[in-house]
Design a protein around this nucleic acid. Structure first.
Lengths: 237, 237
DNA sequence: TAGTGGTCTAGACCACTTG
DNA sequence: AAGTGGTCTAGACCACTAC
């Protein structure tokens, strides 16, 4: 009945491993605290402490009265909220997305370096993000293969507007954390063309690396938009 | 012996109130968990849960083997880390600061609105942040009076390089959280002059509101620097 | 060695969600 | 009503820091 690892931190590691192994599937309930306490031969409080740690991390979601579940990841429109346009109207404006291209490419050295991926091939998705039909962001999204191979089959119009929930649904990969890097640059011809601006217009680039439940980087994203319309909010602790 | 509020959340609120009231001073140890349990007539675990909540918030700092203390606040060079220059050398470069002016001013409507301050007067400090003697950031820092009146007496060369620890030391105000807003603009004549650049050069502005232990805004800061040298890092959860 | 916080137990009862 | 997580108790023992 009882397993090796004692201590709530070891238990947390064990639980994390179950998530990684797919033994506990994303979006689904894990066993009750009482049954886990029995399984591992420890007190309820110890199980609760282990679960609390993973909940803090965003790996597990606790739901009072129901069950504790494995997170399906972020789902907010986490990129476009940084543009001023977003705030104007009273109503929630639904941002759209339009995939321009999705193709398999050879791995880019710079990307491999910053993500640590070992992939022999990447999927590169080019898309724009629009509000009221006007393109505001031009994005290049890189995904490692073979993890995301199911997306390679999709036609341009078959992609969801929100990618992270789509990753969860189609590829069983939950993005729960991301690191953004904001910098400024002058738009290149291609950027300007897609966004309907002049070459050399001030642009803001957000380079994002997104992480899954296991802490592994699973997406590299580079987005550019009009610097004049940009606003980024962040909290410092 | 026992006080009204039961439940760890009420206890946490009570403890927070003690910090606000100055009954528990910043940087100093609070009573041991055991003695608090006795004082409030609850179990140790309940006290621990209350303390954990405040520790999570950054209000209290737990120190295994020693005591739990009230936080003295952030102390990192939280603004200049966003510039590329910072990263070049192997050694830690010590950024400097130079106060240009410190004067009492009438409250600015925009600032009162975004902070909710009721102050009849503000302290405005103008300063630059430099590395290797070169000014990289031009900052305007607004502080509410009378809370910060002790700073009004200081001469320009008497200010510390790091303001947050100085607030804690001189005014007993601990900054534990801040919200930044990053945006892009073209430098005005004054900005450019201070930074040794041409008017109209691309600039990045970081507007920050900093909060103390009680969650009240205690500082409004507006910083501008060279957009081309700027990099902002943030984590998304 | 004394005092602090950290971990753990084995219960009890409460609050929320669902059938 | 049954099952889940949330709160609380009254202990025990461990691990770290200081003197």
């Amino acid at each position: 009945m009882s397993k090796n690892p004692l201590g709530y931190q070891n238990l947390a590691a064990t639980f994390r491993a179950r998530v990684v192994a797919g033994e506990w599937r994303i979006g689904q309930a894990i066993p009750s605290e009482a049954s886990l306490a029995k399984e591992f031969g420890v007190a309820l409080g110890t199980i609760r402490q282990a679960i609390a740690e993973l909940a803090e991390d965003g790996v597990l979601i606790k739901r009072h009265g129901k069950s504790t579940a494995v997170s399906s990841g972020l789902n907010g429109q986490s990129m476009l909220r940084f543009f001023r346009y977003q705030l104007e109207g009273q109503k929630q404006i639904l941002p759209q997305a339009k995939v321009l291209e999705c193709k398999q490419i050879k791995p880019d050295k710079e990307i491999l370096k910053s993500t640590g991926w070992k992939s022999k091939a990447l999927l590169r998705i080019q898309r724009t993000r629009l509000i009221h039909g006007q393109p505001l962001l031009y994005e290049l999204i890189y995904l490692p293969l073979p993890q995301f191979k199911k997306l390679a089959r999709l036609k341009a119009n078959e992609f969801d507007d929100l990618f992270y929930p789509m990753y969860a649904r189609v590829c069983e990969i939950a993005v729960i954390k991301a690191k953004d890097q904001v910098s400024f640059e002058l738009m290149k011809k291609m950027d300007a063309k897609v966004l309907g601006m002049k070459e050399g217009h001030p642009g803001v680039r957000v380079t994002r690396i997104a992480y899954d439940l296991t802490g592994e980087p699973v997406e590299y994203r580079s987005s550019i938009g009009d610097a004049m319309a940009f606003r980024y909010f962040a909290e410092v602790h």
